[in-house]
Design a protein around this nucleic acid. Structure first.
Lengths: 286, 286
DNA sequence: TTCGCGTCAAGAACGGTGTTCGTATTGCGT
DNA sequence: ACGCAATACGAACACCGTTCTTGACGCGAA
């Protein structure tokens, strides 16, 4: 009765952008060498005994992600996930301390999926910028490929094993051209905030019409633009003037919400670049 | 039985930063001239008949905000708000379509509270940057003064009357030095994302120890720093090297989480500045 | 082989949530 | 003073996360 569609996992994930293809699928949730964090003190009653139950941590996490892919974040409940196994919610609590821990596990699985192998870092600042952008793009693509899974990451620092690896890679790249320590340390947070925020905002437009084509999403944004344009111009001169631009209609192209992400990315990376020491800029000029 | 602590409203709000004092309290939720948006089509069954019930829209919104101030976002439920009036949840639905609309109203009330009167814009780019920063600081201060009220704003564009005024002011300031339209139009979103994200992150550290002094919050962050520092250095060379910096310990000062906000603000504003036309920079040099 | 024990599955229940329905009560115009 | 319409709201519905407690099961010891 349970598990009616067997091989549908990772379906939505496959239709992500090309950048995802470049993301190496680093050994999800395998990193026994990293010690567990000291907070959340007693580490919970998780039973590592794995005889051969159909239920286990990884399967539960994978199923939860599949539910998000198919029905969205709000549909994920302990009951809904358990139902996918043909059982009740109580059975999950043998493998997962509570829903919050399940969310942490989901985050780390997503971090595994969006891991990017950071190759040799070139000396050119422009190439460095592009490499940084590609890393952020990859994470963003993974998020939007899993519907509104970004909501899971809200207010959650990805300190799982895979998250730590991603942070390490990000720091390595950021520090490559002499970025000051305090800037590099905070930039990771800022970038994460931007990825999650953008993914959620993207989904917001998309959910207005639940099964919308790209054109219908654009129509929804256009409707908002109409409203903004209709506001009293003497009270809102700038808002009415920029109404069409605000909803992403740039005049020619129409896949606007992606451009929005790219623009924010550019603002962010340019801002970060201003913190590089002057030598870095000159070195790229040789 | 209900309403046990009578005059505790606006308590947390009063201990906000100095910037809040400069924020003018623009006539909350009064803007009949702005037409209602065309989406959310039927506009709901709100009864405008206001004979003299103790219950009304504004009172419900104010009470909901007070509950957030006192017990946090998670405590806000229709029942909890109604209980503050000594009645049941059903009574609220005469004035508010549903919880989502209540949240929209809360957002607009917050937008009223964080409205900044944008004075004459000076010609100096540096002054322009500072003015922009002050505007963002004001909004941020309002958010953190209301506990985790930022969670209400997640995935919610502030298109209420007060929100629109704030956006208009922000656009006016952004465009003052010739910022390209598409950058100005998107910058508002980006800035809002940053304010909300930062406020939530700030509260995340604060809630680890619910009634924490500033020093105890720093201790919690230090604990995380200890963990990051203890990771295997050969696997995480950058993460271990920057562990102490990542949790905000810069070496001298200790009110670090505020510096984190300021740093992100600087990155953002510097990035935006790079989009100004070259004349703007030269003009400031006279 | 049979008994007993320990482990895991899971039904039922507890206290919470947003929302709706239908009834009770109120205030006002006539 | 009466009747009516508009408001107030208790009760109920279908969910939620979590816990308690019972049931089923496999397996080693007697």
């Amino acid at each position: 009765m349970a598990n009616e569609r067997p091989g549908a996992a990772g379906n939505a994930a496959r239709q992500a952008g090309d950048l995802r293809a470049a993301a190496s699928r680093v050994s999800a949730t395998r990193a026994g060498v990293i010690p567990p964090p000291p907070w959340a003190p007693d580490a919970g009653p998780r039973r590592t005994r794995a005889d051969k139950p159909a239920l286990n941590r990884d399967a539960i996490v994978a199923t939860a992600i599949r539910v998000i892919d198919e029905e969205g974040y709000d549909a994920v409940s302990m009951r809904r996930v358990a139902q996918e196994f043909g059982t009740g919610a109580a059975s999950l609590y043998a493998y997962v301390a509570n829903k919050d821990e399940l969310m942490d596990l989901i985050v780390d699985e997503i971090m595994a999926e969006s891991a990017v192998h950071v190759q040799e870092i070139s000396g050119d600042v422009v190439a460095w910028q592009e490499q940084l952008k590609n890393m952020i793009r990859a994470g963003y693509q993974v998020l939007v490929s899993h519907r509104d899974i970004a909501k899971v990451m809200l207010g959650r620092i990805p300190f799982g094993p895979n998250g730590l690896r991603n942070i390490e890679n990000m720091l390595k790249l950021l520090r490559a051209h002499g970025m000051p320590d305090h800037v590099a340390a905070y930039a990771g947070d800022l970038i994460g905030q931007y990825m999650v925020g953008s993914a959620i905002e993207d989904y917001m437009w998309r959910e207005r019409y639940p099964e919308a084509t790209e054109a219908e999403v654009a129509e929804a944004m256009g409707e908002v633009g109409d409203y903004l344009e209709s506001l009293p111009a003497e009270q809102f001169p700038n808002l009415t003037a920029l109404a069409r631009v605000m909803v992403g209609e740039k005049g020619e192209g129409d896949e606007s919400h992606f451009d929005r992400f790219e623009l924010g990315l550019d603002i962010l990376v340019r801002g970060l670049t201003t913190f590089l020491p002057p030598e870095a800029h000159e070195r790229g000029r040789d």
